[in-house]
Design a protein around this nucleic acid. Structure first.
Lengths: 212, 212
DNA sequence: GCAAAACTACCTAACGTAAGGTAGGTTATC
DNA sequence: GATAACCTACCTTACGTTAGGTAGTTTTGC
């Protein structure tokens, strides 16, 4: 199972091109991929149409042909990102054979993938960092991302507690807050301090405490 | 004891003006205060000299008289921020009468103050979110902030564990990671989701686990 | 079946605005 | 009268966006 959480879809498809026929990446998708990548690295306000165009290999005004404005592009990037997670996470909760711990371990993998890049954080964490400088429709999308994830985490933690798989004192809701905050915070801080063992240690801390 | 962690120094002094004579806030300090405030709300790349000048009540080029460049201003803001913490945190570790839990509770207060504003996050978390879009000397300052705090937290946690005040399985270093990541992440996420109980619940979770 | 029409995906050129920054003059203070 | 603090005026660069045009492809009408 693959979750596009920082991993470039276009890049991925490009790699597979030799094996998968008819897998042509549209310019529109390339723009989305490049934009997401740049936002995860530098943020929304620090990137320009020129940066994106250069990496895609088109001219600056051509972006406007696919996305009416920078805000529209930003919204499309976040919506796609939310959607990829929505599909993957729903699949997990609907699968009866997946234990709560397995689901949780799967949830960690995109964070771990991002951590390994050394220069990217979660798209929505990047946007949340400059939240008040975002167009309001983008703010809404970012907020929905966190709502989705908090709800999912709460469900999984409650499921694990009910089945006896997990043991913890807090409410599942409160523990969901701790999980997402620590994971997102970890990616942000470790990119700055360049101690890339930090995320793994935080994940170890978080999971260790589910057993007590 | 007051820590300037988001609370505007100039504003504070202005309030006290009637009671404290000779407390004149220099324009330079006002620029620093306003800049810090704006960065915590919107980030570094989304603010301009014009924004700062308007709030300080001077004209745009006058900022250049006090700070040679935007980068120089940014560095000065972070250095002052780091310094305020350095003084307050050192005072705590040097005071033998302060328990580890008291020190930790004090460490939480600036985060709680920020949480109550509803629109501000930690200066260095804001900057870390757009880390790769920052001038490299600013990156260095931001990294030092996290290094300072991680070191302090590790010390306090180790002290509390040694004295039997705290009980936890992880190393103090690993727990320090969890603490700072969860605190910083919490401010970022709750500003977006607008559920402002989040930080307090995370703090409760973190401290609860020191007793087990 | 095929020309006309419409659409898609780009391009070049240029717009108005705002950014950070500079030069040099004016005002206030000791 | 020197120095600091601030101003006006302006520069260059870059931004998002618009206008208008050109291929090439697809759809339509007879």
């Amino acid at each position: 199972m693959v979750v596009n959480f920082g991993v470039n879809t276009a890049q991925f498809k490009e790699t597979c091109k030799g094996f998968m026929e008819n897998t042509v990446i549209s310019t529109k998708d390339k723009i989305l991929d490049v934009s997401q990548d740049l936002i995860q690295k530098r943020g929304f306000n620090a990137i320009s149409f020129q940066d994106i165009a250069d990496l895609v290999g088109i001219k600056k005004p051509s972006i406007t042909h696919h996305f009416a404005s920078k805000e529209a592009l930003g919204i499309a990037v976040v919506q796609r990102y939310r959607n990829v997670f929505s599909i993957a996470l729903n699949r997990l909760t609907n699968d009866e054979t997946v234990t709560a711990m397995q689901a949780l371990r799967f949830y960690f993998t995109p964070y771990q993938d991002l951590g390994e890049t050394g220069d990217k954080i979660c798209l929505c964490a990047s946007l949340a960092g400059e939240f008040l400088a975002l167009p309001s429709d983008m703010q809404t999308e970012v907020a929905l991302f966190f709502d989705d994830h908090l709800k999912w985490l709460e469900e999984i933690l409650a499921k694990g507690k009910k089945s006896g798989e997990f043991s913890f004192k807090e409410t599942p809701e409160d523990l969901a807050y701790l999980f997402i905050d620590a994971l997102q915070g970890s990616l942000i801080v470790q990119r700055a301090t360049k101690n890339f063992t930090q995320l793994d240690r935080v994940i170890a801390s978080l999971t260790e405490r589910l057993k007590s």
